[in-house]
């Protein structure tokens, strides 16, 4: 109970400060609407406007790019981790592109995939895949040697060793990678929705609300995007806790 009360108190304090700032007219009301106005505008856009559809589009794009990223990052990471010499050879390239801001790749992906859904998914998947790959590879490389030997002695083929031992040994690290990956995918998708020929999505809604001076809605969409990121992160944290029951034991 306490664990819930304290953060709730923090959030209430934040809203109280915001309200105070509005009451004291610290900023132009057009730039800083009251929390109530923000809530009303957002709720209206949810029920009568496009916000629910936007949220759904952003979630779908994020999940889709995340799934593509997993499909590429996990097997490739396992493979590279299992053959450390190969990983060392590509490590620099992986690290380099992992450190490159994905937004800088938009023009390139626009050429490759054109102005459409494909580009948004592709850039987000690319960014997330590198993070997942990197974590999966490190998970495998840090696999307990004794367990690999034990599997071999028990007659497991090399492929079996990958699926029965390496994958499990790397699982905690893979889930950490997935958690960072899904957050990154969301960031890239929202930016892509702002700037790459979009008509919907949370990113598009923020930009439109801003240009139409609908500041209540703009703040609301920001909070919706924040809540989405928070929930995705929380989901993976809970998954790690439940699924990796042996971690640290």
């Amino acid at each position: 109970m306490r664990a819930l009360l304290v953060p709730a108190g923090g959030a209430a304090g934040f809203i109280a400060l915001w309200w105070l700032a509005v009451l004291l007219r610290l900023a132009d009301p057009v730039l800083l609407p009251s929390p109530l106005e923000t809530f009303n505008d957002t709720a209206k856009s949810f029920t009568q406007g496009p916000l629910l559809h936007d949220l759904w589009r952003t979630v779908t794009r994020t999940v889709l790019s995340f799934l593509v990223a997993c499909a590429i990052g996990v097997p490739l990471g396992l493979l590279l981790g299992a053959r450390e010499s190969i990983y060392r050879a590509v490590e620099f390239v992986v690290d380099f592109f992992r450190s490159t801001p994905a937004s800088a790749l938009f023009p390139l992906f626009l050429i490759l995939f054109g102005v459409g859904e494909g580009t948004k998914i592709a850039v987000a998947a690319f960014g997330a895949a590198l993070v997942i790959l990197f974590n999966a590879a490190y998970g495998v490389m840090n696999a307990r040697r004794t367990r690999l030997l034990a599997a071999r002695v028990m007659g497991a083929s090399p492929l079996r060793v990958v699926f029965d031992v390496m994958l499990w040994e790397a699982m905690p690290q893979i889930l950490v990678g997935m958690r960072s990956g899904v957050s990154l995918a969301l960031v890239i998708v929202v930016v892509a929705e702002m700037f790459i020929g979009s008509t919907d999505g949370l990113g598009q809604r923020v930009i439109v609300a801003q240009s139409l001076f609908e500041s209540g809605l703009m703040y609301g969409v920001i909070f919706v995007a924040g809540a989405l990121g928070y929930l995705l992160n929380l989901t993976f944290l809970l998954l790690e806790k439940r699924f990796i029951h042996w971690a640290g034991k």
Binding site: R145, T146, R147, L149, A150, W168, K249
Partner: peptide
């Protein structure tokens, strides 16, 4: 084969 370190030999 029985390893010295059972913690790292069993599959947890």
């Amino acid at each position: 084969y029985v390893f010295q370190n059972y913690r790292e030999a069993l599959f947890p």
